[in-house]
Design a protein around this nucleic acid. Structure first.
Lengths: 203, 203, 203, 203
DNA sequence: TATGAATGAGATTTCATTCAT
DNA sequence: TATGAATGAAATCTCATTCAT
C-alpha cells in the first residue's frame, strides 16, 4: 500500500530526473564535440571532455558507458539530422541538392561546432561501427539518388554520380577543418556559396 | 656481404651506409603512412609502425627522433610535391587547376596510400607546426591564385576564390577517406573525373 | 498504509520502524550473500549488492556503514549459528561431530547460498578482523574438542585432531564452490553423506 | 645476403632471449601466486604483483597480456601437474588415491605457496574459462575414477564417488587457507596425514 | 645497427562513498 | 528513507621513449 501510494511521486520525480539527465547528456555531447574538434577523436581525452563539460572524469560514466558511447551518440545525432534533410528536400534535383548540402554544412558548423568526429565511423569499435556504416551509406545513397535523378532527367550533365557525390560530401565535410566561428564568413554564407558552386559543376 | 666488401674503404662504406639509411627512412615513412591511414594519427602507435616497417620499436629511433619527426617528414614530403605541382602547372587557368588537382589526388592516393595524416597540421607539436602551416598556406594560396587569375581573366565566373579553393581541396582530400586500392576506380580515373567536375563548377 | 495507521503513536511507529529496519538489514544481507557467491568478495560491488537488494546504492548506507560492515554482519551471523550447533550437539563424539558437520553444510548451502565470503576473515579490514578470528578459532576449537574427546575415549582412532578438523572443515566449506541449487543432490543429502564419510575416517 | 648471414646469430640470440624470457615469466608467476595468496585473486593488484616480482607495473605487460593471462598461466601450470599425478599413480586404488592427494597437497603448498587462485576457474573471463573447466573436470573425473574403481573392486565401501571425491578435494584445497610455511607441520607431513585420513573414510 | 627490456607518464575505467534534495 | 549526482582514489592497461647489450 505504502508503495502503491508512492508510485505516483516516484514516477513523477524520476520523470523530472530523466529530463535533467537527458539535458546533461546533451551538454556533454556538445562539450565532447568541442574537444573532438580541438584535438581529433583519438587524442581527445575523457579528462578533457569532463573538464569541458564541467564535471569530474568519473562522473562522465554516470551518463555514458564510455568514450565509444559518446562518439556513437555524436554520430547518430548528426547523421539523423542529415538523413532528415535528404527526406524533406523538395523541388528540382538542383533545388534538393542545394538544400541537402546547405543543411549538411549547417550540421557541420552549427551546434556541433564542426567536429569531423561525427563522420569518422572508423573510430568506432567494430561492434558499434556496422550500424553506423549502414546509416552513413543510407545518407550517401540518398544524396547520390538526387544526383542520379538529375542526370536521368537531363537536368544535370552525364557524370559518375557516386564519385561526384563523394566530391560534394568531401567539400562540405572539409569545412569543419577550416571554419572558424570568428572568421569572415558565417555558416550560412558558407552553406550558400558552397552549395551553389557544387551544384553548378553538374550543369 | 656488403660489410665484408667495404672493409677497406671507410669513406665508401659510410657513403653506402648513408644511402641505405636514407632508403630505410623512406621505407619507414611509407610504413608509417599505411599505419596512419589504418588507425588515424593519434591512434597509430610506434610499435605498430615499427612492425609494419619490419624492425624493432627501439630501432625506429635510429632513423627518426620520434613520432613527431616521422609525422613532420610525411607532411613535408607531401606538401613539397604538391607545391611543385602548382609551380609547374601551365596553360589556361582551367588547365593549370586541373593539373594541380590531378597531381593532388595522385599525391593522396599513390605512394602514401591516402593518409590524411599528411595534411593534419594540428597533430604536430607547436614547435614544428608553425613552419608547416606556412607551407600549407603557401600551397593553398597557390591554388587560390589560379582560381583568382581565372576569375580576373573572365575564364571563370565571379566567385569567392578562397572558399571555392577550400571546397576543391576538401573534395580531393576526402578521397583518402573512401578510396580503396581494390575498388572500381583507379587513382588516375578518380583524378580525371574529380578535376573535371571541380573545374566545371567555375565556368 | 502503515504510516497512516501509526500517525498517532510515535513509540509504536518507531518500534515498527526499527523492526522493518532490521528486516531490511537481513534482506540486504541475503542479497549481499548472493552477490558474494556470484562474484567473490572483492569483486562484489556495492552497486550490484544494492541492485540485488532492490534499492539505490546510496540507500545502502542507511542500513550499513559500508561494505565492511556488511561483510562483518555476514560472517558473524554465520559463525554464530555454527557455534550454536557446536554447543547444542549431543550424544557420542561421532554423533556430535555428524550433527555439527550437518549443520555446517546447511549453513553453507541454505539461506546464505553457499557464499564462502562468510568464512573469509582475511577480507575484513584489520580492525574488524581480530574479533572475528577469535570467534572463528573458537568454532574450530569446538569442533577439534569433539574430535579430541572421541580420540581420548577411544571412540576414534589416534590422529592429529587439529589437522583432521581442518580437513573436515575444508570438505564442508568446499561445498559452497560446487553446490548448485538445481543439482542432483539437495543440501540435506549432501550434509548426510559428507558427515557420514568424514566421521568414518576417524574410526 | 646480409640478412641471410645474420639469421644464424639472430636465431641463436633470440633462443637465449626466449629462454630468459620464459624464466622471467615463471618468476612473475611465482610472485603472482604469493600475491594471490596474500590478497585473494580479485584484490591482487597488478601494481603489487609487479612490485613482488621486482619490476615496474608497465613492464608486466611485456610478459603477460594482462591479469587474466597471468591467472590462466597459474591455473594451467597447476592443473597440468595434478593431472600428471593422476596419470602416474600406481598400485591399489587406495595407493593411487593417497599418491594423488599427496601430490595435490604438495602442489598447493610448495612452489605456488598455496594460492587457491590456481583453482578458481570462476575468476577467469568467459573466454578463457571454458578450456580450464574442461581440464579441471578431467582432473576431478580422474580422481573420481580411482574412487569408483576401488568401490567396484570392493576395496572401498559403497559410496557416492562424486561426492566423496569433492569432499577429498575440498579438504586438500582448503590447506591453502590455513597452511603457514613457518607452522608446526611441513607440507609433507600434512600431505601424509591428510591422504591417510581421507582414504581411511572409504574403507 | 639492432634488439628486447624497462620505465614513467598518462589513458580509460571502476568503485566505495558522500551529498543535496 | 530514498535517490541520482558527484567525487577522488585507485585499478588496469597503453605507449613513446630510453637503455644495456
Amino acid at each position: 500500500m505504502v508503495q502503491v501510494l508512492n508510485v505516483g511521486s516516484v514516477r513523477q520525480s524520476s520523470a523530472r530526473v530523466r529530463e535533467r539527465n537527458e539535458a546533461r547528456r546533451l551538454d556533454i555531447l556538445r562539450a565532447a564535440a568541442r574537444v573532438f574538434r580541438r584535438r581529433g577523436i583519438a587524442a581527445a581525452g575523457m579528462r578533457e571532455i569532463a573538464e569541458e563539460a564541467g564535471l569530474s572524469p568519473g562522473n562522465l560514466y554516470h551518463y555514458f558507458s564510455g568514450k565509444d558511447e559518446i562518439l556513437l551518440f555524436c554520430q547518430e545525432n548528426t547523421l539523423q539530422r542529415m538523413l532528415a534533410a535528404v527526406q524533406s528536400a523538395q523541388g528540382t534535383a538542383a533545388d534538393r541538392l542545394r538544400s541537402v548540402l546547405h543543411a549538411h554544412v549547417h550540421c557541420m558548423l552549427d551546434e556541433l561546432e564542426g567536429a569531423t568526429a561525427h563522420l569518422d565511423v572508423e573510430s568506432l569499435p567494430a561492434k558499434l561501427r556496422a550500424p553506423m556504416i549502414v546509416k552513413r551509406d543510407a545518407y550517401e545513397r540518398g544524396v547520390r539518388a538526387i544526383v542520379a535523378a538529375g542526370v536521368k532527367s537531363r537536368e544535370f550533365a552525364r557524370c559518375d554520380a557516386a564519385l561526384v557525390t563523394r566530391a560534394m560530401l568531401g567539400a562540405v565535410n572539409w569545412t569543419a577543418r577550416w571554419y572558424r566561428p570568428d572568421g569572415a564568413l558565417g555558416a550560412d554564407e558558407i552553406a550558400d556559396a558552397l552549395s551553389e558552386y557544387l551544384v553548378k559543376g553538374l550543369a
